[in-house]
């Protein structure tokens, strides 16, 4: 077990954001956190690596409570890809090298540079490795952020909407790669996602958030149209095309307020 979350509750300015959250993450699993906008997906993700401190509950990373760990110790176990990053005049290579920071004490060594080079080639970023971040497209920048998280060599990857800004090809490529790495190295990933199709295709487990807590969690194959309707308030069919699950919204006119438009 890589991650064990127990009775987690997070309050921001006296507003309950998350309540009684509990789940575990096993090695070799990709878990998606699903739910409508503003339900607290990103907040939950940020609690998992100590960016936010939950008021209640415990988070254990490999049986160690993160409350007893320094932020640097956490960074050696958990990598985080933020939803949005800023671009500065720093080269792609140096930006990825930053992922080695939790492991570096004074300056980057040869081994660090080699790992960065390997990841950059893995993600097809060699051609732009000496470009500045502020010259990249949104998709390229996102790939750099994912590369940085991979080079951190952690057992757990947290990703906030990792593929939201990527085009179809890059999305498939990145998710295939993440899946390959997770399966091949027995590590785990937790990501938030909006696109149910992508989630159902690449994830192993799901967590549906609704009303500040977990509505349902389990194997991604067990997701039913009823669950989706309960969580998102929209009726869907889940079909299979060439063995791949596809989620199709039906009867958009059932949504209050869209009757005329539909």
């Amino acid at each position: 077990m890589i991650l064990d979350v127990n009775k987690l509750a997070f309050t921001y300015k006296r507003h309950d954001i998350l309540n009684d959250i509990g789940f575990t993450i096993q090695q070799g699993e990709i878990t998606v956190i699903l739910g409508p906008n503003g339900v607290g997906k990103t907040t939950l993700l940020k609690c998992l690596n100590g960016i936010l401190s939950p008021q209640e509950g415990n988070i254990l990373i490999k049986d160690k409570n993160i409350r007893t760990m320094t932020i640097k110790e956490i960074a050696r176990q958990v990598a985080y890809v933020a939803q949005k990053s800023d671009a500065a005049g720093i080269t792609v290579f140096d930006a990825v090298l930053m992922g080695r920071k939790p492991h570096i004490n004074y300056r980057a060594g040869k081994a660090d540079l080699k790992k960065v080079d390997a990841v950059i080639r893995h993600l097809n970023l060699s051609g732009i490795s000496l470009k500045y971040l502020n010259q990249l497209s949104g998709g390229e920048l996102q790939k750099v952020c994912i590369a940085r998280a991979l080079v951190q060599e952690t057992d757990l990857l947290l990703m906030d909407e990792p593929t939201a800004s990527l085009d179809l090809k890059n999305r498939i490529h990145i998710l295939e790669l993440i899946r390959h790495i997770i399966k091949g190295h027995h590590i785990a990933a937790v990501m938030t996602m909006h696109d149910l199709n992508t989630a159902m295709r690449y994830a192993d487990k799901y967590i549906f958030l609704k009303d500040r807590t977990i509505y349902s969690a389990g194997d991604i194959r067990d997701v039913t149209p009823e669950m989706v309707e309960e969580v998102y308030g929209i009726r869907v069919d889940i079909m299979h095309h060439k063995g791949l699950p596809v989620v199709i919204p039906v009867n958009g006119s059932d949504i209050p307020g869209t009757k005329q438009a539909a």
């Binding site: 690596n49 640097k72 110790e73 960074a75 985080y80 990053s85 930053m98 570096i104």
Partner: peptide
């Protein structure tokens, strides 16, 4: 290094142990 990490974004920097 810390300033570099913070240039990318506060959350990313925290994720890197800053």
């Amino acid at each position: 290094w810390n300033y570099n990490a913070m240039d990318i974004g506060d959350e990313t920097a925290k994720g890197l142990g800053v």
